[in-house]
Design a protein around this nucleic acid. Structure first.
Lengths: 357, 357
DNA sequence: GGCTTTTCGTAAACCGGTTTACCAATTATC
DNA sequence: GATAATTGGTAAACCGGTTTACGAAAAGCC
């Protein structure tokens, strides 16, 4: 017995023949660019049913030069932040009649550039781009002149494209203000990759809040490195080695917070008893952590949806205007912030958690 | 000033013309099906560089009838379990020279069937399919006769296709044995959707372990419903309402465990002090929960990679044979299991957590 | 030198759609 | 009743590759 052979699909020609009509008639009728007398239309309809005709996608794309497909480029799809983003982008694209292909760059510049080229090469009609490392000009020149790219979450400096970001500065400020209001003055800041917009802005928000409270900024409390758990671990270790460790830590991503918690737990330091913590992103199930982690929640799903809206209108509307949008973030107050164990009175250090060992 | 016009791309014809050679020569040289004297090759190479020629993907696909692309179909990409799976599938596909398109069905049968049809319609060369609901025959008939589909994680009963699953029965048994070994005899089982292979098998493993320990199976302790946090919540509430609530709970997914923890916390019941818990999947950051959650870890990434391997060999190897593979799972012992607070001595109930309120 | 084989290369068909240009037969207009 | 406009439809070009079938020139062989 022969192996399973590929079933032969019907083409427009077959349908036209079956319906005793020309190819063009079938094609135009299908695309609604002509109306036909009831009899003819019915014959075509029947032939299509009978032959189980479905248009060949590739032929259609070749002919039309468009794909009705968008791409979402993210560093890593297994990261819950980007997975959530991907979910909302998928749904939004679908609602606009677009398919979605998901691309993970694993932060390899070559892959990023390759994916960006896909819109030029007509693989997709448009592309949502999210990165998480600073650009050395490679991305800029890859995106430059490319129409149909919108930047999500993170900027690529110099690029002229529609952008949808979250309010990083506001988030950084809110988190820090909250810690300051709880009485903290030595607040560690663990940031993402140095130079990346979101990291810079969150640190600016941090600085703003400290300035507003007349708290001098101690560069030794600030550490950049990446939105990873590993960065959370190493930065926290460094902070703990200081003569005066912070009484609170602002971790600027979920993963950083998770790494920081890891180190704190190993060191036997209680949260928030000895050190308070605020995280950022809030896509991890922080309310099940112990303590439930206070975090700045980014509207990840909104960002995805909005990005698709912008992209689709860029593709379809010739009078499209590029904009930069900032989505508001929200501080989710839970249980990882308490007044500092280090108490200063009249400017003198009375007690630090180290004394309590 | 005119708006940005789409840049005109060079075609093989342009390249051929520029290199003073025929189209076929260029095409065949590019595809390595001919070798040319150094001079000619060099001319072609130069023309390609000069014109920035890149082959048109759609033309290529139309002509060749293949796409070098795989699809991964999952219920929900934002679910960490499937996000992790997607990550590994992406990487594996890439390593075989295939692209990947990700499809989220949101458990809508119409979307599932549509996606499955994509391989027939040549949108992709092959498809990895993961579902999480029982099939009423729709999926079976959609997949039937379709070559180039491999089933991942969850079965669709009756389908003859390569399958890559995890050892659900073994996982259920291990988890339950572990609880039994800790002294538990009233163990709640919170399962996934009733009738779904993974849920059935995990419950079989649960039953096996109980039988082996001569513990009678109490149907009132068993609840199916879905791998969701909501199921975790409602099932846990039901368990707590019993005259004799369980001393341990086996939650058969991360999300279920999270929901269960939620209810237990609200009820002021400590884990593992009053109720022990074992979860399943272990893609959530359980080691940061308090207590760190003991869970059966599924080799999600392995499953993805293996699935791609099977799919690719099915596509490329005519002598391919269908197999069902079972990947081993591993119990990650952490801190959510303790001996039961309910103590029986000489068959009499001496103490339950209820008494300790 | 004549015959075969290899090398280098071409013309043309094909994949399966869309679309332009155009035609014949009705129907509307004056 | 002649002309213009509409209706229903067709043939053929085009999108941009791949591949088959074949030809001419160069090299190999006796």
């Amino acid at each position: 017995m022969a192996g399973p052979t590929k079933p032969k699909r019907a083409t427009v020609r077959n349908v036209a023949e079956e319906a005793a009509v020309s190819i063009a008639t079938v094609s135009r009728w299908l695309n609604g660019s002509i109306k036909l007398p009831a009899g003819t239309a019915e014959r075509i309809r029947r032939s299509i049913d009978k032959l189980r005709y479905e248009p060949n996608l590739h032929a259609r794309r070749l002919s039309l030069g468009k794909t009705d497909t968008l791409a979402l480029v993210v560093p890593d799809i297994a990261d819950p932040f980007f997975a959530t983003l991907a979910g909302s982008v998928e749904a939004a694209a679908e609602s606009f009649g677009f398919g979605l292909v998901l691309c993970a760059t694993l932060n390899r510049p070559a892959r990023e550039v390759d994916y960006i080229g896909r819109v030029y090469r007509n693989h997709v009609d448009g592309l949502l781009f999210a990165t998480n490392h600073p650009d050395d000009g490679t991305l800029l020149s890859a995106i430059e002149g490319q129409s149909g790219v919108v930047l999500l979450d993170e900027d690529v400096s110099g690029v002229n494209a529609p952008k949808v970001f979250c309010d990083n500065r506001g988030g950084g400020r809110q988190a820090t203000e909250y810690l300051v209001a709880a009485g903290h003055r030595r607040i560690g800041f663990i940031g993402g990759v140095e130079g990346v917009m979101s990291a810079v802005e969150r640190s600016e928000g941090y600085a703003e809040a400290l300035n507003a409270a007349n708290i001098p900024i101690d560069p030794g409390l600030i550490d950049f490195g990446g939105y990873t758990a590993e960065q959370g671990r190493s930065a926290t270790r460094k902070l703990l080695e200081r003569a005066e460790p912070p009484t609170a830590i602002f971790a600027s991503s979920d993963q950083i917070a998770i790494g920081a918690l890891d180190v704190l737990r190993d060191a036997g330091i209680s949260v928030p008893g000895e050190i308070s913590m605020v995280a950022y992103d809030d896509v991890a199930p922080f309310n099940f952590f112990s303590p439930a982690l206070t975090a700045v929640r980014q509207p990840v799903a909104d960002m995805g949806r909005r990005g698709v809206e912008r992209l689709v209108s860029q593709i379809t509307d010739p009078a499209f205007e590029m904009t930069v949008e900032r989505l508001p973030v929200q501080l989710m107050q839970r249980g990882s912030v308490a007044p500092p164990a280090n108490v200063y009175r009249f400017g003198r250090l009375i007690k630090t958690w180290r004394n309590r060992r």
